[in-house]
């Protein structure tokens, strides 16, 4: 295996790729459309199923066409570094033209990881956002990932994959306060929950009772509260504080998958009793007093979560406030 990569050669291969597409196209078809809205750097463990990562990226390209740079980290003590270039193409339904995005795959051993940022730098597409998605929890806050993050507009991690949710949130909060823009898929998983809660309180009849809410209960599986539970608790506290309410926000283990139920109660139950509950299958039930409505609530895949995160390349003030509050509450406990 090689131990060096020449970015110039990669760039040359990329441009040759497009020339080849142009020639294949001939006179008959309507051509290949090159699409690029960002550089997406994915850092993944080489042991991880390459096909799964590839599939997520292929789906993402339709929503966020990008130059994807996949860094596959080999669990190897020897210095190893090599790269290959290819294209992800698809034919949109009912259209005559193929759309293609570039993909560069860099394989690096652990020990060579420090050399990767210098390789990535010249491969970044000019003037467009650079997003780093690190799928390896152990790399978080290491010099190699930090160097990559410094090149990026935003770094995305998934704190749900960290062994201890509390310490993960503390470390994330420290990194965020150093100025890096972060995204956390554990937070992204909460969007649909938050959306349903926001919808309930769009009704003035219900939002007028916000100051009267005395308790919020969040039910979750397992003994220890995962990052999503800590995030939603922190967010609810912040939102309710803005509405002039300081209820007891509690989380408790329950027999359910993922986040199970969020319930708002007031001292006088006739005023307001609202809950959002995940049901079997892909359905959520929203209950406000005696009114029940149901909505589709599928389990979010990596693709769904990434699609949402990639559409926000700047700072997300709501997330940052919830992260800071969640980290604070870890300290308090």
């Amino acid at each position: 295996m090689s131990t060096t990569i020449q970015p110039d050669r990669i760039l040359r291969e990329l441009s040759e790729l497009w020339v080849t597409f142009g020639k294949q196209d001939g006179d008959q078809s309507t051509g290949v459309l090159r699409a690029c809205a960002m550089t997406l750097v994915v850092v993944a463990d080489a042991k991880e199923n390459a096909a799964e990562v590839g599939e997520t990226l292929a789906s993402l390209m339709r929503d966020h066409p990008s130059r994807a740079i996949v860094v596959r980290v080999l669990d190897d003590a020897k210095p190893e570094l090599e790269a290959r270039v290819f294209a992800q193409c698809w034919m949109p339904l009912g259209q005559r033209r193929q759309i293609c995005c570039e993909q560069i795959e860099i394989s690096s051993s652990n020990i060579s990881l420090a050399d990767v940022p210098a390789v990535v730098l010249p491969l970044i597409v000019a003037d467009l956002p650079v997003i780093v998605w690190s799928k390896i929890p152990r790399l978080f806050a290491t010099p190699a990932l930090e160097a990559l993050s410094r090149l990026a507009t935003k770094t995305i991690i998934d704190s749900a994959a960290f062994p201890d949710a509390g310490s993960a949130l503390r470390r994330l909060s420290q990194v965020a306060s150093s100025g890096l823009v972060l995204g956390d898929l554990a937070w992204t998983r909460l969007t649909r929950w938050r959306e349903l809660i926001a919808q309930i309180f769009e009704n003035p009849d219900y939002s007028s009772h916000l100051p009267a809410i005395t308790s919020v209960t969040i039910c979750h599986p397992g003994e220890n509260a995962p990052a999503t539970v800590r995030y939603i608790a922190a967010w609810l506290v912040l939102c309710l504080e803005r509405a002039g309410s300081r209820p007891a926000v509690r989380w408790k283990p329950e027999d359910c998958a993922g986040l199970g139920r969020i319930e708002f109660t007031t001292a006088d139950p006739s005023l307001l009793n609202a809950s959002v509950r995940k049901l079997e299958g892909s359905i959520a039930e929203v209950r406000v007093n005696s009114l029940i409505s149901r909505t589709v609530f599928p389990e979010a895949s990596d693709y769904d979560l990434l699609r949402e995160e990639l559409s926000i390349s700047g700072r997300d003030a709501v997330f940052e406030a919830a992260l800071a509050r969640a980290a604070e509450s870890v300290e308090e406990r």
Binding site: T191, R194, N203, S207, S208, A243, E308, V318
Partner: peptide, 17 residues
């Protein structure tokens, strides 16, 4: 009463009943 749960960056405008 303003809805404190709104997050326009993440989800679409909420609609009234």
């Amino acid at each position: 009463v303003e809805n404190p749960f709104q997050d326009p960056l993440r989800f679409e405008r909420r609609t009234p009943e």
